[in-house]
């Protein structure tokens, strides 16, 4: 191998070619530097920077007036105003409260219901078609009824969030229980598990990895729905902030609310992802 390379260099016609090749490699160096820079910087910073630039550029082009599309600076000033007035905290807290309440309610009722449906084939056969019927009805379609039943305030919004996350949770929990390997149940029978141990030592830990995934997904859905629900049924929350600001022609506030919704969504997802990396769940990602 080494000898062959020496020979190639010794051939006069080829030496020029190798030299030019070396020159070209040297010419690539700045690109390599760039790649190295990209590898070390979180790329999200770059892409968010690009979006910010694009946003500013569109505003500068003047396609829409500043009243319709405020620039990044105007949005930042609006954010500051919202923060100082306390509205930012108030609306964010209101939205988070509703999501938390509705989501916990859905988890508290949906996971046990899913376990029952997954474990008892008879219950599954009876209830599953009903769930499949209700599932495609958007939670937003329930808004008129929810407002009539629960009035104005937190309750209808919480109800809608509950609906939005309940059905996916039931379905995925039931599927997870149904998919637990038969061998595990035989081991449980062999070691004389009590009813409680069947739940605590087998079913619950066995479904935890896939339930964590569906918790993450349904929390995302809940966050989507809360904003929509707040546009109609209540007088606080980030969804209300959007509608209220539109009516006041404060498009900077509208954009700020959107930015907040996105940021909080990312944080909620990160929290769930963090939980999904815990010791109790990790085996599911690496095991069968």
């Amino acid at each position: 191998m080494d000898e062959g390379r020496k020979k190639a260099v010794a051939v006069p016609g080829l030496s020029g070619f190798t030299e030019s090749l070396a020159g070209r490699v040297r010419a690539l160096d700045p690109l390599e530097k760039l790649m190295d820079f990209l590898r070390r910087t979180p790329l999200s910073v770059v892409s968010f920077g690009a979006i910010l630039l694009l946003w500013a550029a569109v505003v500068r082009l003047g396609v829409w007036s500043e009243n319709v599309l405020p620039g990044p600076l105007a949005a930042a000033r609006g954010m500051e105003e919202l923060f100082r007035s306390g509205l930012l905290l108030k609306h964010t807290a209101a939205s988070l409260f509703r999501v938390t309440a509705g989501f916990y309610l859905a988890v508290l009722l949906g996971v046990p219901a899913g376990i029952v449906l997954g474990y008892f084939a008879l219950a599954r056969r009876a209830v599953n078609p009903v769930i499949q019927f209700f599932r495609p009805i958007s939670p937003l379609a329930w808004i008129p009824l929810a407002m009539l039943w629960f009035g104005i305030g937190d309750k209808p919004a919480i109800f809608l969030i509950f609906l939005a996350s309940f059905f996916p949770l039931v379905v995925s929990t039931a599927a997870a229980v149904e998919n637990i390997g038969k061998t595990y149940f035989q081991v449980a029978a062999n070691f004389a598990f009590s009813r409680y141990e069947m739940l605590s030592l087998l079913i619950f830990p066995a479904i935890l990895p896939s339930v964590m995934v569906s918790l993450r997904i349904s929390l995302g859905i809940a966050w989507l729905v809360v904003v929509a629900a707040e546009m109609i049924a209540v007088k606080s929350g980030l969804g209300f902030l959007i509608i209220d600001s539109r009516n006041a022609l404060r498009m900077d506030f509208v954009l700020d609310a959107m930015i907040l919704i996105g940021a909080i969504g990312v944080i909620l997802d990160a929290v769930m992802l963090r939980l999904a990396r815990s010791r109790e769940v990790l085996w599911g990602a690496r095991g069968r």
């Binding site: 061998t183 595990y184 035989q186 081991v187 030592l201 087998l202 830990p205 066995a206 935890l208 109790e280 085996w283 599911g284 095991g287 069968r288």
Partner: peptide, 9 residues
């Protein structure tokens, strides 16, 4: 068991 019967969690 033929396949592993260990409780993986």
């Amino acid at each position: 068991f033929q396949q592993s019967g260990l409780l993986d969690w």
